[in-house]
């Protein structure tokens, strides 16, 4: 489909004769009337445009600097987070990161996830079935016994606070890991009106090694056979107690406050 659109005679030939080829097509009208190829002028930049550039660079740069957090990979918030909103959200109960929880608070989470089913969140247990932990001589005495029970479990009849229990079996919780066991025992010993010394994970680790050869669960005589003392090595957590554990069954009472772990 060459330019045979209009008959040749209605189109003025350009008189070209380059000798290159006879079939130099008729230059159809569209090309004939076409203007030359575009070219560029050389007007200078206007000062106003440069002012616009400057403004754009300034604002762009300022924006970049202000809202980039710390330019690091874990800085998900731009720096300017309204303080009021953050404070409000971090208010009652929410907004605490795991790293800032105290041992008792961590222990509470462990307790609720694992122990509350039987011992109840109130620590009161279920009469006849699950012994209470609140005010129990086992939790408020030395830390060795409750730690042993948590690590290895308990089965068989047991008397707590004058009541007889024995139908249920408590499973061992060795799999929880030293920190969690320490936290939950700390929690038990400081909640529901209990105020006994906390337990650290080093103590639990040592106890675990000590009990390594022991088969699964303890029973009551074995627990009662263990000294009612605090586990050795509690200098990190205890406020008042020296490293030497006290003898005797009088529980060393640490009034109230739990020392915050760093």
């Amino acid at each position: 489909m060459t330019s045979s659109s209009s008959t040749p005679e209605s189109r003025p030939r350009q008189g070209m004769d380059y000798g290159e080829s006879e079939e130099v097509q008729q230059v159809h009208a569209a090309i004939q009337r076409e203007k030359r190829e575009p070219r560029v002028g050389l007007e200078p930049l206007s000062i106003w445009l440069i002012a616009v550039y400057g403004l754009a660079i300034f604002f762009g740069g300022a924006y970049l600097g202000r809202f980039s957090g710390t330019f690091s990979g874990d800085s998900l918030d731009p720096a300017l987070v309204p303080a009021a909103k953050k404070a409000a959200a971090a208010g009652p109960g929410g907004g605490q990161q795991a790293a800032e929880l105290s041992p008792a608070e961590r222990g509470k989470k462990v307790f609720l996830a694992n122990c509350a089913t039987c011992h109840q969140a109130t620590g009161l247990g279920v009469p006849g079935q699950y012994p209470p932990l609140a005010g129990s001589e086992f939790t408020t005495g030395g830390s060795r016994r409750p730690a042993m029970i948590v690590l290895k479990g308990l089965q068989g009849p047991v008397k707590v606070k004058g009541q007889q229990y024995g139908s249920a079996v408590m499973q061992p919780w060795e799999s929880l890991g030293d920190q969690k066991v320490a936290d939950v025992v700390t929690y038990e010993r400081s909640e529901w009106g209990n105020s006994a010394s906390p337990v650290t994970k080093e103590q639990i680790a040592a106890l675990r090694k000590e009990l390594a050869g022991h088969p699964a669960s303890f029973n009551e005589p074995e627990i009662l056979g263990a000294p009612n003392e605090d586990l050795p090595g509690g200098e990190q957590g205890a406020q008042q107690q020296p490293s030497a554990p006290p003898q005797g069954s009088a529980p060393p009472s640490t009034p109230g406050a739990q020392p915050p772990k760093p």
């Binding site: 970049l64 980039s68 874990d74 800085s75 998900l76 720096a79």
Partner: peptide, 11 residues
């Protein structure tokens, strides 16, 4: 995302 990525695009 890290905030700088988004801010870089906005800038």
């Amino acid at each position: 995302f890290p905030a700088w990525m988004v801010t870089a695009s906005i800038a």
